[in-house]
């Protein structure tokens, strides 16, 4: 309890947390959009991407925000205007609530829920609500179809995501994300502690299922049926223009970043490196610099994971709606149920 909860009054702590949360939402979103969406996708398609604004187009993001600020905000005549205007905000709130649970360092966390995993899963499904609101209120057939498809898809892929996380919870014996991180870095594999014990090694099936579900929850390309541009124009976002569209866009990539953060917390050891490298015996032995180094380590892992998400997005063709549903219900759900039972048996045996 040294950095955040030190001697600051409650309002100052809250202010710090809220500022940190804003950075934790916007920074990953900006990184993903510039690094992967602008640059990596361009290089994969043999072009340079944005080059004009700043060196190598690095200021392109600011130019984009400036551009979107000046665009007219149109709500269609027949739309349910109030719901239509509210929908992007609901999606953005969901992202902010999601980042609140991610621990960034031994003392650098926003909230320390005992049921952190549970909270994470609950909050992540709020965005479905926003998407349904957008699809329904637009009074547009494309939006309606896109919204319904999105709801069906997000429901279907929420299950494998929930079930794959249970494996981690069984192994860690706790739902507190901070304890999950510490266990992974403090652990040992059959007495060898040079690697810690990242749950990726024992829960690789869970990790795979989790990442596939994240891809689907974010409606990234193999699973982008709800916004399939060649048949639904832009799905539930069809009628949006101006800054409200940009809020949807920011929320999409910020959520990609936050889910990558959560995946690295659950499976890759989060903010920590194996404690044995530094000779730390337990939680109390952790040096204070970890509160600064931890976020950097976590963000590095986040960039790798979101890079994989984007890589898959740029490489795979779109799945058909029925294939998509079949994959969730007939492949991922049974696999993750079996994974739970095997993890539980191994946990009891060892």
């Amino acid at each position: 309890m040294s950095l955040l909860a030190a001697d600051l009054p409650y309002w100052a702590q809250s202010l710090l947390r809220v500022l940190g949360g804003t950075v934790a939402v916007l920074l990953p979103a900006g990184t993903i959009v510039y690094l992967f969406l602008f640059k990596m996708m361009s290089f994969m398609q043999s072009r340079l991407g944005p080059m004009e604004a700043g060196p190598y187009g690095s200021l392109q993001l600011f130019a984009e925000v400036g551009k979107w600020l000046q665009k007219e905000d149109i709500a269609p005549e027949n739309a349910d205007t109030r719901v239509f205007r509210m929908a992007p905000l609901v999606v953005l709130v969901s992202t902010f609530l999601l980042v609140a649970v991610v621990p960034f360092g031994p003392d650098a966390y926003f909230t320390d829920f005992d049921a952190g995993v549970f909270y994470m899963l609950a909050v992540s499904s709020i965005s479905t609500l926003g998407i349904l609101m957008a699809g329904w209120s637009s009074a547009n057939k494309y939006s309606l179809l896109g919204g319904l498809r999105a709801a069906g898809q997000l429901i279907a892929y929420e299950l494998p995501m929930v079930l794959s996380v249970i494996g981690v919870v069984i192994q860690a014996g706790t739902m507190n994300l901070q304890s999950i991180v510490i266990q992974q870095n403090d652990g040992e594999i059959f007495g060898f502690d040079g690697l810690g014990n990242p749950f990726l090694l024992t829960q690789f099936v869970g990790f795979l299922v989790f990442m596939i579900s994240v891809q689907a929850e974010l409606t990234q390309t193999p699973f982008d049926m709800p916004i399939a541009e060649s048949e639904l124009v832009s799905g539930y976002m069809t009628e949006y223009s101006g800054f409200r569209f940009l809020i949807f866009f920011i929320a999409e990539f910020a959520t990609a970043g936050v889910f990558s953060l959560i995946a690295s917390v659950l499976f890759l050891g989060g903010w920590g490196l194996p404690f044995s490298w530094f000779g730390w015996e337990s939680v109390d032995g952790i040096d204070n610099w970890m509160n600064v180094g931890g976020p950097l380590i976590l963000v590095t892992k986040m960039v790798v994971l979101s890079g994989i998400i984007m890589w898959v997005r740029f490489s795979f063709p779109r799945m058909r709606e029925d294939q998509l549903q079949r994959f969730a219900w007939k492949v991922l759900v049974p696999i993750s149920l079996v994974n739970i039972m095997i993890t539980a048996i191994l946990k009891v045996v060892f």
Binding site: S14, R17, V18, F96, V99, A100, F110, F113
Partner: peptide, 19 residues
């Protein structure tokens, strides 16, 4: 902790409304 969550929701709304 739950109050912090409320603050996070508030800052999301404030940020979006500001922009």
């Amino acid at each position: 902790d739950y109050l912090t969550v409320v603050w996070f929701a508030v800052i999301a709304l404030v940020l979006a409304s500001l922009l």
